[in-house]
Amino acid sequence: MLDERIAAELVGDYIRELAASGQRKDGRAFDEIREIKIRPGTFTKAEGEAWISLGATQVLVGVKADVGTPFPDTPDKGVLISNVELLPLASPTFEPGPPDENAIEMARVVDRALRGSNAIDMEALAIKSGELVYMIFLDMYALDHDGNIIDAFALGSLVALSRTRIPVVEVTEDGEMIVKEETFDLPLRDLPITFTFIKIGDALMLDPTLEEELVSDAAITISIDSSGRVCSIQKRHGSFRVDEIKRAVSIARSKYSEVEGILREQGGLV
């Protein structure tokens, strides 16, 4: 809505001036991430979940498992479906309705980070070739939007997936499906972490707040896998020079173990 843009306009010059002198409004260094917190408790009926905050931004991610028929071109692989809901309660600018282009972009970027790093062992999710596989629904719910929802979604997804336990399903010889009492851990082979940068003038800032996002000239999201490889990139609005993108990738790689450590410390990675 209008008020948000007017506010950004008013504070924009100040944020730009600060950026030019190497500072941010909340006092963080350019490559500093806001506090990551995992809220303890049970909040959903999902097989894996995480309520995570990144500064004042809060998201809730739930992983639901189901079974269904595989895609014809991947008869021996499970199915991952990623979905983002930018709930109207998270921001005065979010409106009720089906996911808009921003929501769809975020869902697809998180999805690509997981696929690009082969994070989920999709072969292990096949039950009967060509007939029955596990379907994993990754539902990302924005609760409170103070910037960089996408990194919050990616972190929340990682935590939720690592906590996911799925009931064992078997198919008998006469084709009957049996859901067992026992469960298994969703097979996670990698832990891709997503880093979003914005550009304000010449400044490259990690993990932007909403105010910073609104005045930014450009934005890019980069995912790094556990061996330091880049596994997905999405240039979002604006434009970057080649050297800026290289710098962003290098900062993201250098930040990987710090963020992974925070998630582990808080019991986020099982």
């Binding site: 739930g62 639901k64 979905n83 109207p88 009720p96």
Partner: peptide, 17 residues
């Protein structure tokens, strides 16, 4: 007023919307 159920709020995933 908008009452909405999250897709992960039920034993079986609820279609959003």
């Amino acid at each position: 007023c908008r009452y909405n159920m999250a897709p992960f709020s039920t034993p079986e995933r609820k279609r959003p919307g």
